[in-house]
Write a protein that binds this DNA or RNA. Structure first.
Lengths: 142, 142
DNA sequence: AAGATTATATCGTATACTAAGATATAATTA
DNA sequence: TAATTATATCTTAGTATACGATATAATCTT
């Protein structure tokens, strides 16, 4: 029952995996911008106010983040029809692309990696990630 | 043999896991700073010049990154004894802490997650990460 | 309908980050 | 001794981040 040790090992592996397999990108994008894009991608619907809460910045700063991200072609605004004060923000294609490059593992490197593994090992990786992502959602829902 | 689909699924899970389990931090640290800290942590020894190559910035810019990171208490300089022109940079405690918060999964959330799993499932997760991190190192070595 | 509240946007201002060119310093190599 | 290498500093400049103050428009309250 020494989960602490296992957790440290998982984290060590997690960062090693990312370090070796992450996409090499050249886009100049700030840390806050990535956080904003991630939040927008993973949430059902996001308003400027939601973003302000999530990033823990003032409403005007959030509004400026949105302005910058639109200028870069990463997101778009959609005014709510129910309450026309509200503005929803959504990722558009370029935003998805940039976010993928910053958060995902490199598909080509993964492909090379999988080539050297057996079908059983691949199946094990796949089912482990399914299990972990399902459990992770569960944890954050409480 | 449809690895493409499996790869997409792994990536989807990967980002979901990170989204739900990452550490909630408040440090204001830039993207380049995280990249620099990551590179310093994962490499055997790093000079200012190595950093400049890795970040693809000029030597003077790399030198300024180092200056900023030292000012923030994240890294330290160690002048080489063999060649006294060279300066190695290393992570110090606060740098490790900040980097962990930005790249690792939250230990408490992981602990809650593991509590609901069986010993077999935990073992499966552990061995999968060991396998993946070993393979990842292999891929990046070519 | 008038006033209060809510959601977002904009302006002014300030600080920090990022980056490069030019230049300087010190150590090493030829 | 001269050339090269590694790093540091100075100047300059564009961008990012953030907030307070203020503005606008929609919605809610009375």
């Amino acid at each position: 029952m020494n989960n602490k040790k296992i957790i440290k090992q998982i984290n060590q592996d997690w960062t090693d995996i990312y370090h070796h397999l992450h996409v090499v990108h050249q886009e100049n994008i700030s840390h806050q911008a990535v956080r904003a894009l991630q939040f927008i991608e993973k949430s059902e619907s996001v308003t400027v106010g939601d973003l302000s809460n999530h990033l823990k910045v003032s409403h005007n700063t959030a509004s400026e983040h949105v302005k910058r991200l639109i200028k870069k072609g990463y997101i778009a605004k959609i005014r709510s029809t129910e309450d026309e004060r509200k503005v929803f923000v959504v990722l558009i294609e370029k935003g998805h692309e940039v976010l993928n490059k910053h958060t995902r593992l490199d598909e080509q490197k993964l492909e090379i990696l999988l080539e050297d593994l057996s079908a059983d090992e691949i199946e094990k990786i796949e089912s482990t990630f399914t299990l972990l992502s399902r459990s992770a959602k569960h944890v954050s829902d409480n």
